[in-house]
């Protein structure tokens, strides 16, 4: 059983949803992102997504764009992302990389998979790579025993839900809204039907991302999903801390605890 499957199984045994937290590597600095992610692990995240900052993030709203841009301006490299994974995975938490495809292809798909596996990474989420174009990644992930998490969307046909989930391992990432990443004040009414349709296609755990920013929203999503994925809200806390590491850590801890309580209410 993979680290990811274990994390979701543990949450399921406790009759709750898993909390999945995201931050880009290198934001605000490489050591800063490691410290921040460790706070999130300590305060209750079950799974960590380490973002690989990319110059053309078409699925991201302004908050994550700003963080990625800052990370790139600070000189964050692909190899730094792997070192962040290694540090976070060292805490024992299931750690995956979330990345647009071109940096992986540039690094070399097989090489990236091998280096991710030896860093202790559990798998990879690919927002702009669907199984249609994923031949080399399907092979490399199988060889390295990494989980591959593809996205499903409210617009996915039932046929595509079956096709996509057939190629997923670990969990399925369901995007709750039609739109880019970013905290939203109301939870989506498209998410629950999507999770229901996804469950008809697969037995894998289904995590819901895009838009969740507080414990109440997390509780609402936890009512129908196996995982609650939070990204922009964490990034927002970091941005608002304005580079003060202590303020950032306190703020991340407070948010994580709120969300962790939420996934236990749902």
């Amino acid at each position: 059983m993979s680290l990811l499957s274990e994390a979701f199984a543990r949450a399921r045994n406790e009759d709750r949803a898993a909390l999945v937290g995201y931050l880009p590597a290198g934001f605000p600095t490489v050591p800063g992102s490691i410290e921040a992610l460790k706070v999130m692990v300590d305060a209750g995240c079950d799974v960590i997504e380490v973002g690989l900052p990319y110059s053309d993030p078409v699925m991201d709203g302004p908050t994550i764009q700003a963080a990625a841009q800052q990370a790139l301006e600070n000189g964050t490299r692909t190899s730094d992302v792997l070192s962040v994974v290694e540090a976070v995975a060292g805490t024992g938490v299931a750690t995956v990389v979330m990345t647009y495809w071109n940096p992986v292809e540039r690094y070399g798909v097989a090489r990236f998979a091998a280096d991710l596996a030896s860093a202790g990474g559990a798998g990879m989420i690919t927002p702009d790579l669907t199984p249609d174009e994923a031949g080399p990644w399907l092979q490399a992930s199988a060889e390295q025993r990494l989980d591959r998490i593809f996205l499903v969307a409210p617009s996915s046909t039932d046929e595509r839900l079956r096709y996509t989930t057939d190629h997923c391992t670990g969990f399925v990432y369901a995007t709750a809204v039609m739109g880019v990443t970013g905290a939203r004040t109301a939870t989506s009414d498209l998410a629950a039907p999507l999770v229901r349709r996804t469950r008809n296609a697969t037995d894998l755990p289904v995590g819901v991302g895009l838009g969740v920013s507080d414990g109440d929203q997390a509780a609402a999503v936890a009512g129908y999903a196996d995982g609650v994925i939070v990204g922009s809200a964490f990034v927002r806390r970091m941005l608002d801390a304005g580079g003060d590491a202590r303020v950032a850590a306190d703020s991340l801890r407070t948010l994580t605890e709120d969300l962790a309580a939420g996934v236990r209410r749902g």
């Binding site: 699925m59 174009e133 996205l151 969307a153």
Partner: peptide, 19 residues
């Protein structure tokens, strides 16, 4: 599926695949 030899294809978010 839109490939010109090794080039082309469709590297896009799943949300746009149906469209």
């Amino acid at each position: 599926s839109g490939h010109f030899g090794e080039f082309g294809g469709r590297f896009m978010p799943e949300a746009l695949m149906a469209a």
